[in-house]
Amino acid sequence: MSPMTSLSASQRLQAFANPARFMALSARLLAPLWVVSLGLLCVGLYYALVASPPDYQQGETVRIMYVHVPSAWLAMFGYSLMAAASAVALIFRHPLADLCAKSAAPIGAAFTFLALVTGALWGKPMWGAWWVWDARLTSVLILFFLYLGYMALWAAIEEPARAARAAAVLALVGAINVPIIRYSVVWWNTLHQPASVFRMDGPTIAPEMLLPLALMALGFTFFFVTLLLVRMRAEILRHRVRTLRLARAAASAED
């Protein structure tokens, strides 16, 4: 950690995205992002529900996949984004990175929740049980706990700067642990379950199913980014409200 290089790097980053410039840039981006994400989702829904065939094995329940798989993808994408933003926040002290990590958490948690519930709704007709302790479901459940813990830590510490640094440490420790937890759960699963368990992912996926899946995944990803911008803008304003209130308190103390 040489102070000279990190200083210049952080200065360059600050010039690249200070809060005021971010507000201006995101304000211009929001409308097109809404149009693209909602458009993709509408087309995706049409293909998912109407224009794609039922699976020869799973029948109509395969349509659950078009919501479930993109949610699971965004659950992992959200946590990776959070961890990357936390790393940037800790190394470069970038003010927007903290806000990015904080804003990504509730969106990621919501999609993790969606992945879990749709997984249960898929499991009931396919496996005959709402919940099976399969390696994938279990590790997504643990990911959900990690999201909740991260959000609880933000909520528990009152001072924003302190909360941001503590939460960033937690997100990074979580990112280091996620592969270990994932590996241990898979290992545990092979130890306990017979090999004849029905697998969700077939060897190949038909192209007519790939199109709705890709459309929905892309649409949900754009939706994620759009919401992330909205929430980051709200966080910047929240910061502004705080400074204004502090200034008011200081001014009234002077009088």
Partner: peptide, 10 residues
């Protein structure tokens, strides 16, 4: 029941 619940939640 399953498919439409999933899409409603989605």
């Amino acid at each position: 029941a399953y498919v439409w619940t999933v899409y409603a939640l989605g």
